[in-house]
Simulated assay, not measured.
Amino acid sequence: MSEHVLITGGAGFIGTRLAARFVKAGYTVTVLDSLIAQVHGDDPKITSPLLRSLDGVANTVHGTVTSKDDLRTALKGATIVVHLAAETGTGQSMYEIDRYVDANVGGTAKLLDIITNEPNEVKRVVIASSRSIYGEGSYRTEDGRLVFPNHRVDADMAGGDFDVHMPGEGPLTMVPTDESALLHPSSVYGITKQMQESLIMTVAPTIGKEAVSVRYQNVYGPGQSLKNPYTGILSIFSTLIRQGKEINIFEDGLESRDFVYIDDIVEATFLAATLPQAAGGTFNVGSGVATTVNDVIAALFDAFGTTVPTKVSGNYRLGDIRHNIADTTALRDVLGYEPQVAFADGVKRFVEWVLTEPIEGDNYERSLAEMAERNLLK
């Protein structure tokens, strides 16, 4: 019997490339995707290049993980499930709570319920988890102790203090966060990703299925949605640059993330789904390098060959973290993989692709207004 992969949420930025990777390796692929307008436009067959890229690659099922009937259809013959389907966006999750929990937690529960209680051929389930489950991640105290600070508080940030603190401790130093770190997400999105991971890593082994978790850092690259204002700052800033608009830099511009290129995410996920030694494992997938917002803007200006005005406003979003970078030792030691694309090179590839795309509208401004109305953007 040939291996048959189901990728939930597989018509998205990551899923379409992952589908092609599996097909290249000789696997049969089915994709289940709800094709939401926020990502794919109002008429996906026309407005979604991602969906069109699956033609001749995968069997596409237009449906949702919140429907057991859709899941049953998509699961037929599947021996591996890569569960990418999720509502994404830290900010939006803080006010569209029911939708995020229903899709992310409810959809995962339905998937597991079917695999547990109905005949199927599934042998391994891979969950696409997130760095958001770590909250503020790992820090060292002045005397060298490893600590996991609580979320930043509104009062400090309102006063312009954006750093992470712990009562009774002096200055803290960020260190790479490994898979054993405390899980304490600071957003509804993060909570739902932790629950997705916990459900799969707990249930699957009890019913004789292998479970693997891949904790993605900040993914970017060609094909990333330029319509969806919740997909990340590279898309947002690129659109502002092309429109000649000012970039509003939140906090002080020194907040940092671990940006990982799409090709590295795809290869790490493929290995997590196929290598025997991955079974039961949890793996950070990131570059292991901290890149600040200021660094991102400088790299984009260089790649575009132009600049726009910038303003360090001190605005901040409740639920955002200050820093996070991944310790990728397990990815290297167990799966034998290290990310290949440096940020500067990845940004150039991303911008080359962006310049072939139409300039999108002001969805970002609308998203900020929605957050401000709910007192989540200060």
Rank of each mutant, 00 (worst) to 15 (best):
L32E: 04
G221E: 11
R374N: 01
V164K: 10
D263A: 08
D154W: 15
M1S: 05
A272F: 02
K209W: 04
D258V: 05
V23L: 03
Y27T: 04
R131M: 11
G208F: 05
L172N: 01
A86P: 04
L6W: 13
A181W: 07
I321S: 05
G107W: 06
A326H: 12
R124D: 06
V147W: 09
N104H: 10
I46M: 13
I359E: 08
I97G: 00
G336N: 12
G63V: 08
L331N: 04
P339W: 14
N218S: 15
V293D: 11
G77E: 11
I14Y: 03
D263I: 05
A155H: 03
N248D: 11
D154I: 12
I262M: 05
V126F: 10
H323M: 11
A278I: 00
S130E: 08
K76Y: 06
G208E: 06
F304A: 10
F304I: 04
H184C: 02
M174K: 07
V266L: 03
A303Y: 01
A181S: 10
R140V: 03
I233N: 08
Q224D: 05
V293K: 07
T108N: 06
G89P: 00
I247R: 08
E352R: 14
R322K: 13
E169D: 07
R152T: 00
D156E: 13
V334H: 01
K378D: 08
G244Q: 07
T73L: 15
V347E: 11
T141H: 03
G232N: 12
E370F: 13
P49A: 14
K123Y: 04
T8D: 10
L240T: 01
D69I: 12
S48P: 01
S287Q: 12
I191D: 09
G107S: 09
G12E: 13
G170K: 09
N117L: 05
A58M: 09
I46F: 15
T47K: 11
R322C: 04
Q92S: 06
A58T: 03
A211F: 13
F283E: 14
R140A: 05
A372M: 10
M166A: 11
D43M: 03
M1N: 00
N117I: 03
L111M: 09
D161N: 15
I262N: 10
D252C: 08
L54A: 06
L240N: 02
A273T: 00
T90H: 06
Y27F: 15
T177L: 15
G232D: 11
M195Q: 01
Y27W: 11
P176E: 15
Q243C: 03
F259N: 02
Q217M: 14
L300P: 01
A20K: 13
P149E: 12
E352I: 07
R332M: 11
